[in-house]
Amino acid sequence: MRIVFTSLASYGHLYPLLPLARAARAAGHDVVYATAPEFHPAVEKAGLEPVAAGMTLPEAFGEAFAGDTRERHEVPREELARGIGRAFGRVMPARFMTDLAPVIADRKPDLLVYEMGNPGGAFAAHVAGIPSMAHGFGRVSAGDLMVPIREQFTVLAEEAGLTGNSAVFWDHPFVDICPESVQAPEFVAGARRVPLRPVGWSDGGELPAGVADRGRPLIYLTLGSTGHAQAHLLAEAVRGLAALDADVLVATGPAVDVAALGEVPGNVRLESWVPQAELLPHVDLVVHHGGSGTTLGAFGAGAPQLVLPQGADQYTNADAVVAAGVGAQLVGEAMTAEAVRESARRLLADSAVADAVRRLAAEVAGMPSPEEVAAGLGAYVG
């Protein structure tokens, strides 16, 4: 069977699809992965064949806000939402439709698997008359930000002749890596879910020394790899966590100048990057921004979470963490060093949180593996 996988060009959208794509290839299927050339090295490291399609997020935002010289904080909220809606709901899907057409004509796939942020894949498959299925990267957000995005790509879908409910991805099968207990209930009720265990993905690498051999709790702090990871937020969180009798490992990411964090106490270690998938099973508490990859990774690893959301779907992820009883959140001005310290102290000691974390980890462990799902992909062709 020939399969085209496609996702938006960002690691947060790319990585969740790699385990299933690799499993499909291992099962003997002819697999290619379509995304922007900048991300082809990551695809190749995963042992997959990349093909060019789409554009990067900065390119899409540049087109959506063409001619606007204002800084992001200077754009009124409603206008910003409309621009984001254009970028995700019109600019990128239209580009992917155009770029995927020759890929489909050349490869003649039996199935196209599109990441849920990339409905252009669904539109291209529909125009070409081939089956498609969606693939999630986390909880399906119903937040306010999705309204202008869905409005835009619903129009584009209708232009491509694809009608139906976009909120459940036009009734396409949906590979869902989010445990049902924390998935949006309205989505679970209406979607054709194909559960898949979330399998963390990273490019590989060694764990920092001492991670697996220590005598006190290990707290992992990350604010992701985007511009949200601002030095002052990390510094405030570090100040709070350093006061605990624990080791603190900080993944600063490429957006932060480590020097801007200044001197840190001896129980704090700064790393620009860590192999997160390999690290999480060793962690006693994850303090993070609420990105889907980190949220789901902590679910599977059985680690409580303190979420410090900064934007996008991070707020709904934080709400889901709290609702599941597996962590806490600090938003806006509530995020102070003292609040981080006390929240972390409570989460490390709270037996009710520990019980909830174990239950959720067991739920994740019981979800079908990538190999099991890959073995059944033929059922969605026809």
Results as ranks from 00 to 15, higher is better:
residue 196 L to G: 08
residue 226 T to F: 09
residue 183 Q to I: 12
residue 168 V to H: 05
residue 211 V to C: 10
residue 184 A to D: 14
residue 153 F to P: 01
residue 196 L to H: 06
residue 220 Y to W: 10
residue 185 P to N: 05
residue 148 P to W: 05
residue 230 Q to L: 08
residue 220 Y to S: 11
residue 229 A to S: 14
residue 204 G to Q: 10
residue 175 V to P: 07
residue 148 P to Q: 06
residue 229 A to Y: 05
residue 176 D to W: 02
residue 200 G to M: 13
residue 231 A to P: 03
residue 183 Q to R: 10
residue 163 T to Q: 11
residue 230 Q to P: 00
residue 171 D to A: 12
residue 189 A to V: 06
residue 185 P to C: 08
residue 175 V to E: 03
residue 161 G to P: 04
residue 241 L to R: 07
residue 152 Q to I: 00
residue 214 R to N: 03
residue 186 E to D: 15
residue 168 V to F: 05
residue 203 D to A: 15
residue 213 D to I: 03
residue 211 V to G: 06
residue 207 L to P: 06
residue 164 G to Y: 04
residue 211 V to P: 09
residue 241 L to Q: 04
residue 192 R to K: 15
residue 197 R to A: 09
residue 235 A to C: 01
residue 174 F to D: 00
residue 231 A to I: 09
residue 225 S to H: 01
residue 184 A to I: 11
residue 220 Y to H: 15
residue 213 D to L: 08
residue 238 V to T: 13
residue 180 E to C: 00
residue 213 D to Y: 01
residue 206 E to T: 14
residue 227 G to N: 13
residue 197 R to I: 02
residue 148 P to H: 04
residue 180 E to P: 00
residue 240 G to A: 05
residue 181 S to C: 07
residue 239 R to C: 06
residue 223 L to E: 06
residue 157 A to V: 03
residue 173 P to K: 06
residue 240 G to I: 07
residue 233 L to D: 12
residue 200 G to H: 13
residue 161 G to L: 04
residue 193 R to I: 13
residue 234 L to Q: 09
residue 154 T to P: 00
residue 198 P to A: 09
residue 174 F to K: 03
residue 203 D to W: 04
residue 207 L to I: 11
residue 181 S to W: 02
residue 205 G to A: 12
residue 229 A to E: 07
residue 203 D to F: 02
residue 237 A to H: 10
residue 167 A to R: 14
residue 179 P to T: 04
residue 172 H to C: 00
residue 159 E to G: 05
residue 218 L to A: 09
residue 194 V to E: 02
